[in-house]
């Protein structure tokens, strides 16, 4: 695309959202990066050096000299952080895999339904997205608790004698994440499947492929983009998830979002939390870049 200076009117239109994002999104991220290089002190705000915009350029250089990598060193030294990154990635990956296994058949069943029902069904599958995240996670507490609805039902039916211990485990967190993010995964898979030309499946059948062979050689590979998009859309926020591990998880499910929250509000170690955030961002950039390159490669062909 040609890069050219914009007309004055266009510049005015652009400047409002641009400046807003620069101030409320880009600048804060820069601040996070900066504070991650500060030292933790007992003060308000609890980090040093503070950033003085009025001190001029010289002071800025001076401040730069006092930058410290303590927070990052602390991150490496503290096994809590390292483990919580691993836990976060593991839980997010497992949840994403399960969500795809649940979402794909559902999306396929919706796409193969009668045309008149399709819109309604996909609407129904996505509708929970519009309801409160917090409430949906809360609903699972009542189900999964030791004296909860699931155990109550299973014990009444005589299927188990002792209540299952799901609540406050990693399994509960995985269930909660799969449940909460399912609409994000169903929708892109549905879109990819819905776009597929029916004639492609017919062509495969015409050339002698049975239903299973047709699915694995045509339907599935052609919906891969939807699967990847759905997986990414879920995986990235799930890694940093705070509410679900906090409400459904136990003490052994220390995900990074929770650790940062605790460092921030309870330990008041802002540089550590900031460093944690920067590292998390760096980790999450990897799948995004991979996805971008995959997209552009697909588009160039």
């Amino acid at each position: 695309m040609p890069r050219r200076p914009l007309a004055r009117g266009a510049r005015a239109v652009l400047s409002a959202p641009y400046l807003w994002l620069a101030f409320f999104f880009i600048a804060p991220l820069a601040l996070v990066a900066k504070i991650s290089l500060s030292k933790s002190v007992v003060a308000q705000p609890p980090y040093a050096p503070t950033f003085d915009l009025y001190a001029g350029f010289g002071a800025l250089i001076e401040a730069a000299r006092t930058l410290s990598f303590d927070a990052y060193r602390g991150l490496v030294a503290d096994p809590l952080y390292f483990e919580s990154y691993l836990t976060s990635l593991g839980v997010a990956a497992l949840s994403t895999a399960i969500a795809i296994l649940v979402a794909y058949p559902l999306a396929l069943a919706i796409v193969r339904s009668d045309r008149r029902w399709r819109g309604f069904l996909i609407g129904l599958a996505v509708a929970p997205f519009w309801t409160s995240f917090l409430i949906r996670v809360y609903a699972w507490i009542a189900i999964l608790k030791e004296e909860g609805l699931l155990n109550h039902a299973l014990m009444t039916l005589g299927l188990i004698r002792e209540p299952l211990e799901i609540f406050a485990t990693t399994m509960a967190v995985v269930i909660g994440i799969v449940y909460s993010y399912l609409p994000f995964v169903v929708l892109p898979i549905y879109n990819a499947l819905e776009k597929q030309d029916v004639a492609l499946r017919e062509a495969a059948a015409d050339l002698g492929a049975g239903p299973l062979r047709t699915f694995f050689s045509v339907t599935l590979p052609l919906s891969a983009s939807g699967v990847v998009a759905g997986a990414l859309l879920m995986f990235i926020p799930a890694v940093g998830e705070f509410v679900i591990p906090d409400l459904l998880g136990g003490s052994d499910t220390m995900m990074i979002g929770r650790v940062m929250w605790n460092d921030f509000f309870e330990n008041r170690d802002w540089p550590a939390a900031s460093a944690g955030a920067i590292v998390l961002l760096a980790i999450l950039v990897v799948p995004i870049v991979w996805f971008e390159r995959r997209q552009t490669r697909g588009g160039a062909v």
């Binding site: 652009l14 959202p17 804060p28 991220l29 940093g240 979002g257 940062m260 929250w261």
Partner: peptide
């Protein structure tokens, strides 16, 4: 336009960025 890619990134990043990071950065601001 110049810096279009920065603008695009700033529009799309918050869609997937963990809320904890957004919240933390805003608080620091």
């Amino acid at each position: 336009f110049r810096t279009r890619s920065v603008f695009v990134a700033a529009i799309y990043a918050p869609l997937v960025m963990p809320e904890v990071i957004l919240g933390l950065s805003l608080l620091l601001l």
